[in-house]
Amino acid sequence: MNSTLIVARREFRSNFDSPIGYVVIALSLLGVGAFFFRDYWTINRATIYPLFTWLPWAFTFFVIPAITMRLFSEEKRTGTIELLITMPVRDREVVLGKYLATLALVGVLLALTLTYPLLIGRLGNLDPYPIAAGYLGMLMHASAGIAIGLFFSSVTENQIIAFMLTAVVLLGLFSIDYLGAAVGGTLGDIFAFVSFQRRLAPFGRGLIDLRHVVYFLSVTVFFLMLTTRQLESRKWK
């Protein structure tokens, strides 16, 4: 665990050694802000629900693919992965450390959106608990997304490919609910079952459902395992 935290700390710091961390956070905050206030004053409700509508899109299209693409791809490309793996840390510690560091980066991004409840709370009677639930949902969603991004980063040396693969898969998982609604029937139910959007929406409304929590955790665990095995696979390649 100590090794995991050391890897996580170093990885987290490295996010801020290059402009990428700053650019990703700043751009996503600007984009989400612009969308948030598109109809906000017209709707005139004391809620920050639109934040939990737009942030997942930003996570899906941009934030998660961008911050996960380099995690292993870059190390593979530059060869530093060999240095990393010769260190006396287990593969799973490396994977978990990188995962935690990226989740912490998302945490920083989310922390910077706390201005929304703080400032909007001055204008109306905000209910704080759904906001907390919404943030929990965002962390759950980010957690699953990062695990997926980490996996794709571990399968290729090319960051662009890792970005694209992550974005496509996340977009698919996020928006498959629309397809489910269009298809209907059992297939629709299956699509709804795997849809990130469908799982995430209740959090923003203030509902913390065990099924959704377990689902996001399952996706996270599965892809972290997959990434670990992907790293380990060099043993038998």
Partner: peptide, 28 residues
């Protein structure tokens, strides 16, 4: 592991009703 997670989620989907309604008035 994948199968366990899928089966676990499916089982939970049909059995679990545990959820916390965090809204002030338990609206949902």
């Amino acid at each position: 592991a994948g199968a366990v997670l899928v089966v676990g989620n499916l089982a939970l989907q049909s059995t679990s009703r545990f959820r916390i309604d965090a809204t002030r008035e338990e609206k949902f």
